[in-house]
């Protein structure tokens, strides 16, 4: 696919990837493999990444495990829409979003976002926008296992 950059040079855009996984993934390996297999890697001048991992505490309580539920059809569609919308706003060449669902242990990666662009600003701004949109709009819900029982997380942290 070819789109116009703000400077009207032709810019190739890769097929972007939105992955929802019940299985553990190693975030940096995922990012590295995505970049290595990209046919457009020689155009990448900037890579911006965000990796969100599970903490073993929340609201001053110990959290031993987390169950991440989602609305499968809507989630996949929403993540793909986010990538599409980011591509409309910034000249990003490639983008990867991966999100865990199911049972998650402390230190496991929950979400990975990577944006590749020719120059740093587009990748950084798109990556920041994507994680904020995902956190406040993508239909995922966390249920934490705490010493006093399982608790649904009711709101996101401010950042």
């Amino acid at each position: 696919m070819v789109m116009k950059s703000p400077f009207f040079h032709p810019l190739l855009v890769a097929d972007m990837a939105a992955i929802i996984s019940e299985d553990y993934f190693e975030p940096w390996q995922l990012i590295s493999e995505h970049q290595q297999k990209s046919e457009l890697a020689k155009q990448f001048g900037a890579t911006a990444t965000f990796v969100g991992s599970m903490r073993d505490f929340n609201d001053d309580a110990h959290v031993s495990e987390m169950l991440l539920e989602h609305y499968p059809e809507m989630t996949q569609r929403y993540l793909e829409k986010l990538e599409h919308d980011a591509k409309q706003q910034w000249p990003i060449i490639d983008c990867l979003i991966a999100h865990r669902v199911g049972h998650i242990k402390p230190a496991d990666a929950i979400v990975v976002i990577a944006c590749w662009s020719a120059h740093r600003r587009a990748a950084l701004d798109a990556c920041n926008w994507l994680i904020e949109q995902l956190k406040f709009n993508a239909p995922f819900w966390k249920k934490e296992s705490r010493p006093d029982g399982d608790v649904w997380v009711e709101h996101n942290t401010a950042g």
Partner: peptide
Amino acid sequence: NLEYAKLNSSVNDGDEVAFFPPVTGG
């Protein structure tokens, strides 16, 4: 039908309507 809507939004035959709390992913 997998798109955010409002409580006063119209529904039609064959629609899928989902109700859930505020999201907390990421």
